[in-house]
Simulated assay, not measured.
Amino acid sequence: MVLILVFGGLAVVVAGGLVAAVFVAALQDEGEGGLGSPALGYITIEGTISDSRETVRDIRQLSRNSAVRGLLVRVDSPGGVVTPAHEIYTELKRVRESGKPVVVSMGTVAASGGYYVSAPADMIVANPGTLTGSIGVIMELPILRGLLDKLGMRVEVVKSREHKDIGSPFRDMTPGDRALLQGVVADVYEQFVAVVSQEREIPLDSVRRFADGRILTGRQALALGLVDTLGTLEDAKLIAAEICGIKGEPRLVKPAPKLNVWLRRLMDGMSEKLLGVPQIPRLSYRW
């Protein structure tokens, strides 16, 4: 006998004495109005951005919902890895260009990659004390050679050409390595600056004046043109409803959490916490 119990998107399957839990791909609904009435899609981007797949999937799912008039995106992130941040940015930009407004509400932190994913919004709403900005790129490469020497261990490397093991933790960085990696970081930095300049309509030279990695409060960001107004999540929700032509308290439609997302969040950063070093090598928009 197979018994399936569903609790708000979580299906518990009981079969032959075995219990398994799987999240059902469904939408969670809250607020005024019934199903089918005009609504806002609600997405949260929280913590370190290390994978874009679930967020992009959720954005697409909501944007294709005929009842969803626009997206309200809550960002509370210090940033993360470059490529996932860019993929989320690209998907939000696609929604905006499709004609559905995107409004971002910044929480405690929306810095570096957290700002990058916010940039394509029609309206960015920050709290006065939000920590944002930190426009820049960082690459961290731990060196373990000294530790291995103390343990009496070494790693032999056979490589095709000089830079094939660039960034290896088993040897010191050479001047040539550093020059090459600095070029990579500089190129990605210029991409970040260009995105900010384009999305916020700020001249490139003006962006570079404050794009040195510094953090900014929401109020400072407003003065520089990086956000549009100051306010809370509730303020952002009302602003989004007004832009989308929704009267009264807007209905929010949320993607249901999935089990694999929960497991990924549980494991995210585990190697850093256990080993004290990040996954390497990687480029990050991170504060």
Rank of each mutant, 00 (worst) to 15 (best):
L144V: 14
L71I: 07
L151N: 05
F7T: 08
F210L: 01
A194R: 14
A179Q: 14
V24C: 05
V137P: 00
A15R: 12
K164V: 13
L180T: 08
R53A: 11
R282H: 10
S160F: 13
T48G: 02
G225S: 02
S77R: 01
L226K: 05
L252Q: 02
S168Y: 13
A256L: 08
G80D: 00
I202S: 01
P101R: 04
G218V: 02
I215R: 11
A21N: 06
A85S: 14
D165Y: 14
N65D: 15
S112D: 03
R286V: 04
C244F: 04
Q198Y: 06
D205R: 12
A179I: 12
I143N: 13
M139V: 11
V207P: 00
Q61E: 07
M139N: 11
R200K: 13
S37P: 05
R74D: 07
G79A: 06
E190K: 14
A211E: 03
S284E: 15
Y285S: 04
R96F: 07
Q279K: 15
G36I: 08
V22M: 09
R94L: 13
D76H: 11
P38H: 05
D187S: 15
K150Y: 02
V73F: 06
L263S: 05
G248C: 04
A39I: 00
V95E: 00
Q279L: 14
R69P: 00
R154S: 15
Y116P: 01
P169N: 07
T48A: 07
D205V: 07
L263E: 08
I124C: 06
Q198T: 11
L40A: 09
L35H: 09
V137I: 03
V195P: 01
Y115H: 12
A240N: 02
I143L: 08
P128C: 07
K258N: 08
Y116L: 15
I138F: 05
S50P: 00
P78G: 05
G34D: 07
V6Y: 10
V125F: 06
V158F: 12
S105D: 05
P101L: 05
L18W: 10
Y285C: 03
S271N: 12
H163D: 07
D172P: 08
G136E: 05
L148S: 03
L224E: 05
Q182D: 13
G133R: 00
E97G: 03
E156M: 12
R94N: 11
L216T: 07
R53C: 06
A221L: 01
L216S: 07
S105W: 06
